[in-house]
Each structure stands twice: as structure tokens, then as C-alpha cells.
Amino acid sequence: MDNSELRQRIVATADELYNSKGIQAVGMDELRTAAGVSLKRLYAEFPSKSSIVMAVLERRHQSWTEGLDATVQQAGTPQERLLAIFDYLAGWFCQDSFRGCGFINSFAELGAISPDVAEYARKHKESFQEYVGQLAKAAGAPAYLAPQLAILAEGAQTTAAIAGTPDAAGQARQAAEVLIDAALVTAQAGSAGSAG
């Protein structure tokens, strides 16, 4: 096994443990045992626990971005692409490993004591809002729609984690339909008004 494969295994194991138990509850010794590496090798790959945490956040960001975009790209119209965000959430919420947003959880657990974790969580959330903004623009919606939909998605993640059911995705999707329809009517009215 080369170093890249070993690093990936350590990060995947850490991600699983952090997701199920929390970051602070998992020590390096537990991670070493679960990943099947010596403590010396673990520290050779990652000099500190914070370096592993940041690698886990990078892995989560990539997984989220790729998974979300794959679902969105399968949708037909620009409006359906906006709604596909909530379809992606519905699938995620049904997974046995779902414990809420890893970025929200990491921020809640470490944001006050780790500026790096806080900053990465902020950047992840900003990139999501930018992505939704691009989808909203492609649908011809006003700029204010993107943060509204992003807040709906964030609320759905938290609600689903606490409630332990995937219902919040469908409820958020229904609310998103209303917001999208209203935003598109406003945009069309604005276009018609400026054309006259």
C-alpha cells in the first residue's frame, strides 16, 4: 500500500469515527487501531490531530460537492436543478451514517477553539451558496433566491439530524417550490415592466 492509499484509509476511518462519535471523543490511539496502522506511521502521515481533522473536512467537502452536482446535473430544467438540491438531501438523510452536516457539527464542536475548522466550515457554506446562486441565475431567478434556498437546505440538514427522519428534505423541497415560483414570477414581472 502506497502512502496515498494509506492516507486515504486513515482519513476515511477518521471521517467515519468523527461522524459517529464526534471529533473530540476520538483519540489518536483509537484512530490508529481502527485504521490498522502503527501510531508512528499515523504521525508520519499526519503530524497532529488537527491535520487529520482538516483532511477529513476536505474529504467531506469533495464528497458533498461531487454528490450534489451529480444529482443536480441529472435534472432537466434549470428549475428542476434547483429542486434537485433537496432530492440530494433526501437521499443523504436516508443513509444509516447520516448524523447531520459534518461542517455544522465540526463548527459546533471545534469552531470556538480552532480558527482553521471555523474558516473551513465558513468556506464550505459559502461555496454552497455560490453554487445555488449559479443555479438560480441559470433559472432566471433574482439573486435573493439563492440564500433563501441555501437556508432551507441548511435547516433541513439540522432538522433531519435532530428528528432522526428524512422528512425535512421533502418539506424543504415543497417550500423551495413556493419560493422558486414566486421568485420567477417576480423576475418575469420585472422583465415585462422594463420591456414596456
Rank of each mutant, 00 (worst) to 15 (best):
R122G: 04
D167E: 15
I151W: 13
Y144G: 03
E177D: 12
G133E: 08
E177N: 04
A118R: 10
A160M: 01
A146F: 15
S127H: 09
Q134H: 10
G140L: 03
A150F: 04
T165S: 09
T186C: 10
A136M: 08
Q174G: 09
L135H: 05
G170E: 10
Y144E: 07
T158L: 13
Q174S: 13
Q134K: 12
A183H: 02
E154S: 01
G190P: 06
R173A: 05
Y120S: 06
G164C: 01
A182C: 11
T186A: 11
I162L: 05
Q171F: 15
G164Y: 08
A163R: 10
A143S: 13
A175R: 08
I162P: 06
T158R: 00
V132S: 03
A189S: 13
I151T: 07
L152A: 11
A175T: 12
A138I: 09
A168V: 10
Q157R: 12
Y144M: 09
E130N: 12
Q174T: 14
V185L: 06
F128K: 06
L179R: 08
A139D: 12
L179T: 14
L145Y: 14
S127F: 13
Q174V: 10
V185Q: 10
I162T: 05
Q157N: 04
K123I: 14
I151K: 07
Y131P: 02
T165I: 11
R122I: 15
L152P: 00
I162N: 00
E154D: 14
T159K: 14
A141T: 02
T159C: 13
G155E: 05
V178Y: 01
A187P: 00
L152D: 14
E119G: 04
A139Y: 02
L149K: 02
A160S: 06
P166C: 08
A146N: 11
A121I: 04
Q174H: 09
F128P: 00
T158S: 05
I162R: 09
A163M: 14
L179P: 01
H124E: 07
L184V: 05
A163P: 01
A172S: 05
A182F: 15
L179M: 14
H124N: 07
T159L: 15
A187W: 04
G133D: 07
G133C: 03
P142G: 10
A182Q: 14
E119D: 13
Y120H: 07
P147K: 02
A136E: 09
T158Q: 05
A150P: 03
A172Q: 06
A153C: 10
A161W: 02
Q134I: 00
G164I: 02
G140S: 03
E177T: 02
K123M: 12
T159W: 04
A118Y: 10
I151A: 15
T158G: 05
V178L: 10
A153M: 14
L184T: 04
A121E: 00
S114V: 15
V178F: 03
A183R: 00
P166G: 08
S127V: 02
V178R: 04
A175C: 07
K125D: 08
A160Q: 09
Q148A: 12
Q134S: 12
A175V: 08
D167Y: 10
I162S: 01
A138K: 11
G164K: 01
D116T: 11
Q134F: 09
G140D: 08
A182R: 13
S191D: 15
E126W: 13
K123Q: 15
F128D: 06
S127A: 03
